[in-house]
Design a protein around this nucleic acid. Structure first.
Lengths: 237, 237
DNA sequence: CGCAGTGTTGATGTTCTTCAAGCAGAGTGG
DNA sequence: CCACTCTGCTTGAAGAACATCAACACTGCG
């Protein structure tokens, strides 16, 4: 039984059985539960544990003076929400549970010890951090240079691939707990507009979305329609 | 004579004289020169050296299918353009020199050795990487949730603070080699609109900008006007 | 000199926002 | 059981922010 994190890291580096064991043991530590819609951690605080998503989705977000809320990233199972390096700093953003959320809480020293023992894990985590950065850059591109339909299409593609990397897709679809409101806050458009865009995409048979399940009839066609290129995830389609 | 990088890292961690020496020695390695407007490194290639900006400005950017170019970050003296962890991967973006650009080229093994010797430097680099991520998140917020005047104002504030951290401001102003075209590609708006916004900001005496020099008569007033909060840089104003 | 890159301004559209309203489903309490 | 509320989805109409197109001025440069 591999962990989600093990699955993800396994795409970058060949993990030995021992590596997988180390990860699985680490993740079997104390878990944190956060109910849907609740904040997991607030801007301005100093985190004390490394935290890793085990089950459910979360969103990193910031709130502006004008009251607008911008989601700057989604956290899926296997994702590291709080890395060690940030522990001495004040957090510049908050994290909210979208779904009911289960996180592993790991002592920074324990993670250090594991990285000490396994070069593979150390490398894989470093690469994972670089990919997180690449994702954040891609979001910047998305918001800065694409129109609303492409933005939303690219987001849906990204989530598809990231979920596939941890084995959480079903055929060419996936369970998606996001509301149109969440999607609007991530895509930087109004909910009304998200609604209209989704409607168009349904009409064009690019996606089907009902009852928290997104089905992509033809992933390549969707990717082409919205200009999605997955190279930043270091994955093929 | 401290290096720009030493100055910057010194804000996170107290560097010893030995640490500063190590950095200065590392940066005295082979240097790379890139003329203004030229690409330093192209999307899709695998970098072989760690690279650090010594002089001049650069921009990370991506080009989309539709031909649009989005700048996703500016690189200033002291900034790490190519970290070790990325070396085995294909780059997802390109980097262009804005100014004439001088970079230090460091062998990954040499940087490893230095991080091995100095815990301070290792920690400071890890924190620097986290701040790069925080900057990228803030750009996401900027493009997703702010109107053009605030976007541009926040960019100008960010550059001011980052330059101040390496001692490159003059009073409440700084040398800025960006064209309005660069700024437009970073802010995700048209050059025409950038021009009009700048005009407004000049009128309101929020900034003066002539011949590559930006003067901010009252930084706090500018920050307030555009909703800039510097906490993500882990710096006060 | 001509030329290319940049800054500036006006006129005209388009995309997206905002406001407003209605509807469906889930949970709650009488 | 029904009314009630709440949240999320959906649609229409009016308006604002911004893009696009076009023209011209200014600069430095070969």
């Amino acid at each position: 039984m591999r962990s989600m994190m093990g699955r993800k890291l396994g795409h970058f580096v060949d993990l030995t059985d021992r590596d997988e064991q180390l990860l699985a043991y680490m993740l079997r530590s104390q878990t944190l539960f956060v109910g849907a819609g609740q904040d997991m951690i607030r801007e301005g605080t100093r985190p004390t544990f490394v935290k890793i998503v085990m089950e459910g989705w979360a969103a990193r977000y910031k709130i502006l003076e004008n009251g607008r809320r911008q989601i700057v990233g989604f956290l899926l199972p296997g994702d590291l929400c709080i890395p060690q390096a940030i522990m001495t700093m004040r957090l510049d953003h908050s994290i909210a549970a979208i779904d009911d959320l289960h996180c592993a809480m790991v002592h920074p020293e324990q993670l250090d010890a594991i990285e000490q023992e396994s070069i593979n894990i150390r490398r894989a985590l470093a690469m994972d951090a670089q990919i997180s950065l690449a994702i954040q850059r891609e979001w910047t591109v998305n918001l800065g240079a694409r129109a609303a339909p492409e933005r939303i299409g690219c987001l849906i593609c990204e989530l598809y691939l990231r979920l596939k990397a941890v084995g959480m897709t079903e055929g060419s679809g996936y369970f998606c707990p996001l509301t149109q409101i969440d999607l609007a806050e991530a895509a930087g458009v109004s909910t009304v507009h998200v609604n209209r865009v989704i409607k168009q995409m349904r009409r064009a048979d690019l996606i089907q979305w009902r009852e928290q399940f997104i089905e992509i009839p033809d992933p390549l066609r969707l990717a082409q329609a919205c200009g999605f290129r997955p190279s930043y995830l270091q994955m093929p389609f």
